[in-house]
Every structure is written in C-alpha cells, then in structure tokens.
Design a binder for these strands. Structure first.
Lengths: 221, 221
DNA sequence: TAGATTGTTAATCGATTAACAATC
DNA sequence: TAGATTGTTAATCGATTAACAATC
C-alpha cells in the first residue's frame, strides 16, 4: 500500500498503471474521448471489476453507460506515478545492461531520463554509450548535487553493487533501482527497487514445469 | 499458486527461491553444512517465520536447534525451479537488450542457456552478438525443432512483439519471456512471463513519491 | 424506457504473521 | 537440563472478486 496525496493505492494497482497508461494513450491517439472499464479490461485480459477498482484509485469519476474521460485518466495516472514531470536519474555501470537501459525507448515517454553514466573502469571513462559520455565515479556526488538527482540505476556486477550503492546514498540519492543480483544493505530511508532477471526467469521456469506437468496429466488420462 | 510434483507452492515463495539459492551457495562455498531459517531471514531481511514456511515448501526437514542441511536445500530449490538441468532458450531481437541478456553472467549457474539468436533485420544476420551468430528469423522453427527448445526470449520493439511471438508459438515454443512493452495475445496454453522495465520504474517512482511525502510531513511537524 | 456501466458494500481468497507445542 | 529452532495450527491482513443499487 502506497499513500500519495493522502490516497492509499495498493502496490498491485500501481504496477498495473503503466499498462493502462499505454493503452489509454493509444486510444487517445485514435481520437477516442471516452473509454469504459469493460473495454480496458478486455484489452488487458483483466476482470472489469478490477479495472473499476483501479480507476477508483485515480479519483477520476466515470459516467454510467459511457465510461471515463481518456484524458483525465491519463493525467491522473501520470500524476500518481510522478510522471507529470520527467525524473532525471544517473546510471552506474557502463556494461551491456547499462547500454540497453540508456537506449531503451520505453522510458522516453514514461518519466525517466538518464542524464549521466558512471563507471569504475578507467578505460571506459570518456567513451560514449548511447550518446552519453561515461564519467569517472569520483564525479558522482558532484553531478547528483548539481542536478538535484534522486534516483540512481545500478547495473554493476553483484560484487560491486553494495559499494557503489553506498557511494550513491552518500551523495544524496534517495531511490535506487538495482539490477545487480545482490541484496543491498542500506539505511531504511532509501527506497530500493530490485529488478532481478534471474528471479523473473525462475518464475517462468516454475510456471512452465507446472504447465507441462498439467498437460502430461491431461494427456495421460 | 504453482503445483509441481503435487506440491503447491505460492508464487511469492517461488520468487524468493533464487535469493535463497544464491545465499545458500555462498554458505556452501564457505564450507558451511547447516543453516537455520533465522540466519537466512536475517541476511535477506525477511521474517524467520516466512523463511520457515518457504523452506517447508521444499520438503526438506530441519533439525530443531540446528537448522537445515545447506546441500539439501540447494538441490530441492533447484529442483522446483527446474534448474537441475540447464534449460536451452532462443532469443529474438538482437538489439541492446538482447545483447545484455546474452552477456548476462547471472544466468550461467541458474538454469538458462541462450543457444540461438534471431532477428528480422537482414543487416544483423550473420553478425555476432556475445559470441552467438545472429540467424535469420525464417530459421527459427528449424532450430526450435532440432534442439527441442521450449522457451523464447523476446527483445524486439513493441510493435513487432505480437508477430514474432506468434511465429515462436507456431514453431512449438511453450514459454515466452517477453521484454517488449506490449501485452501478447496468445493461446491459453502458452506460458507468458513479462518483464516490463517501465512497470518496475513505475513502482520505484510511486514508492519514492510516497517516501518523500512522508519525510516532508515528518519534517513539517 | 431499457440496458449498459459505474461505484459501493460485503464475501472470498491467498499470503503473511502470530502463537505455541515438539524436539534436539 | 535449558534454550534455540523447527513445524503446525490459527489469526490477521490485504487484494481480488461478487453482488447489487444508483445512474445516465
């Protein structure tokens, strides 16, 4: 449960917000003005009741028989995700994954702009990655301070994650998006978001075993 | 809830398994034979009762006052994740993100091996990416069939995702790991795992707003 | 008007947490 | 033995789903 503007929004709802947003923007582009929860549900394979509950969190009121104003929903969702203003972030770790994130088109219209890249490796410093010059990690604090950055994205190897995270926090970073497969130990007032590729794969693995098992049992009978 | 070998395991437990596995292997490397749920909990910042519940799902029995056999837990968790045998997968979309996944060290010891890469772009075909030669997408079905591949990883742009997913399913793929920010519409008997970077960032954004709000309120009082 | 859709209140479901007896 | 830790059963909590009245 997350509270923004004194409104409590369940975390699963927050997670569904980006998918709604994408769809709503598509509809807006087609010139559509109204959309019903029923339609959204169908397109996202969710239950209408769940979409209505989620929409209720946005504070936008719908009209029975018509639905919701697309533009209102877009603005409300963007607001609760903090995407009404683009957030600047720094990235630490100029490897393959770092390059992928810098080049990722999806962030452009979704509130995230990576404005600086740092790496411990002196040989990478000065080189360009996705149009951004790699800086030495010693300059991190200066950049964070100068641009008032809150978010650091960590794409270094597991063994280096803890130490660069500490440097970032020291520099004033408030939120960390950690791609390294390592649990970070930081002060409680730092927000940590972990994206663990191995964990995602684990989920797929287990679901697939479960699924193939089921199919085998059905066929066996 | 996922059922494997007639044992039901909650999805959140499955998601915690990789973190346990990493920690357990570290302890094993240090020559430690026994480990208690209390210790695991402390190192992962979880509650001991939750770790005990999770361990119960593995079927491994612990000894009061001593804990669990590290080696038994490792084997049991690997079994439920299907990581006792490495899974071969193909990757579609030889862009930055694809390159990052192919080069990702974390997969090596965690049951995943990417054995072939495909791309629609003729100019990329024949070039190497992380030591793997990019094949033309027309050869996909042949490869899937020849090596009995179940899993496809999709790292193409959103607009191409649906069509390559359909090709993969046509070729016999049973599980899809989708990195494209697009909901796939496929037959119900295909397992789809979505890793949406924008969604992860949304979560961080919202948590951070909530957190900064809280801090402001505390200071205001 | 009739019917689709919203919004509210209550029921259900699943996961986490608590309490505590069993055990080495 | 005393005490830490396990494992089981019950309580709590939060999210999803159901039911239905309100409404345009």
């Amino acid at each position: 449960m997350i509270t923004i503007d004194n409104i409590s929004i369940p975390l699963p709802t927050i997670r569904r917000f980006p998918a709604y947003l994408r769809l709503l923007k598509e509809h807006a582009n087609r010139g559509e003005v109204w959309i019903s929860a029923t339609t959204l549900a169908e397109e996202l394979k969710l239950k209408p009741i769940q979409v209505r509950k989620d929409m209720a969190c946005t504070g936008v009121e719908g009209k029975p028989k018509v639905g919701f104003l697309v533009s209102e929903l877009v603005l409300a969702i963007e607001h609760y995700l903090g995407w009404d203003n683009t957030t600047d972030a720094i990235l630490i770790g100029a490897g393959n994954l770092g390059a992928a994130l810098i080049g990722y088109k999806g962030f452009e219209n979704n509130g995230l702009r990576i404005i600086a890249v740092f790496d411990k490796d002196r040989r990478k410093v000065g080189s360009q990655i996705g149009g951004i010059v790699v800086s030495q990690i010693e300059d991190l604090a200066k950049t964070v301070d100068k641009f008032g950055i809150n978010i650091a994205i960590i794409t270094v190897p597991a063994h280096a994650a803890q130490s660069v995270a500490e440097m970032a926090v020291e520099a004033g970073i408030k939120g960390i998006w950690n791609f390294a497969p390592k649990n970070l130990n930081l002060s409680d007032n730092i927000v940590i978001q972990k994206t663990d590729l191995v964990t995602s794969f684990a989920e797929l693995s287990a679901k697939l075993i479960n699924h193939l098992d089921e199919q085998k049992q059905i066929q066996g009978k």
